[in-house]
């Protein structure tokens, strides 16, 4: 059984008079521990697709099953609260913009998801492991303004990992970084996928970054081709 099984996912929305077919009949399956890079030009619909897979948005039609549980069954639209609960259970997100809270320290930013859920007892050990793994252990009490660009991004990754998600979704995570940092982050994510068995979906327009994934697919005009 696939960890993620999407069938005929479609997302249309209107922009003025025009109907934008952002995602058009996409079906894919991702196994546990897999890593998939979705390549595509700007406006190809790749971000919309992973927002559907990542339960940030409802599809217009199609179904989505995560870990055997039906999320979108093609008949119901899920409310915000329901979507949030699914996200909490399965996903970690890394966005192009990091959105760390400037008045919170690195540690506080990383632990922020636990403000909204309940922290598990071994959280601190986990935090320790993640930050050591990401090379942030000496930066825990720093504010984001005191970090380098790479450290900020790694803090955002740590925040995504702290809840032990089974799936990590990264939307243009290196969009703001130079090629050296892009490689650094790519290597890091590849290690995460390999060592921690975290299923990963990367969205990027950068083919060099896409090679850090096991598989690559391309999005064009709302359609996905492998």
């Amino acid at each position: 059984m696939s960890l993620i099984q999407a069938n005929h996912l479609t997302k249309h929305f209107t922009r003025g008079q025009e109907i934008v077919r952002a995602v058009e009949d996409v079906s894919l399956s991702i196994e546990k521990g897999d890593s998939l890079a979705i390549l595509g030009a700007s406006g190809s619909g790749k971000t919309t697709l992973i927002n559907l897979i990542g339960c940030l948005d409802n599809p217009t039609s199609g179904t989505l099953t995560i870990n055997g549980q039906s999320v979108f069954d093609g008949t119901h639209t899920l409310a915000e609260t329901a979507l949030t609960k699914i996200r909490r259970a399965h996903f970690g997100y890394i966005f192009q913009k990091f959105f760390l809270i400037p008045t919170l320290t690195v540690q506080e930013n990383i632990l922020l998801p636990f403000l909204f859920t309940h922290a598990v007892p071994e959280t601190m050990q986990h935090l320790h492991d993640i930050t050591r793994w990401l090379g942030l252990e000496k930066r825990l009490n720093h504010l984001p303004a005191q970090l380098s660009g790479g450290e900020v991004q790694r803090t955002a990754i740590a925040r995504a990992l702290i809840t032990r998600p089974s799936i990590l979704i990264a939307d243009e995570p290196t969009g703001n970084l130079d090629s050296r940092r892009t490689e650094e982050i790519g290597t890091l994510l590849a290690r995460l996928n390999k060592e921690q068995q975290i299923t990963m979906i990367l969205v990027t327009h950068n083919p060099a970054f896409a090679q850090f994934a096991n598989r690559t697919a391309e999005m064009k005009d709302g359609k996905l081709t492998f």
Binding site: E80, T81, F95, L115, F116, T117, T163
Partner: peptide
């Protein structure tokens, strides 16, 4: 606005 969006993405419920 965006920051609150992120908070919601990482698990904050509307009531929170």
């Amino acid at each position: 606005y965006q920051e609150i969006g992120i908070l919601k993405a990482i698990g904050a419920l509307p009531k929170q």
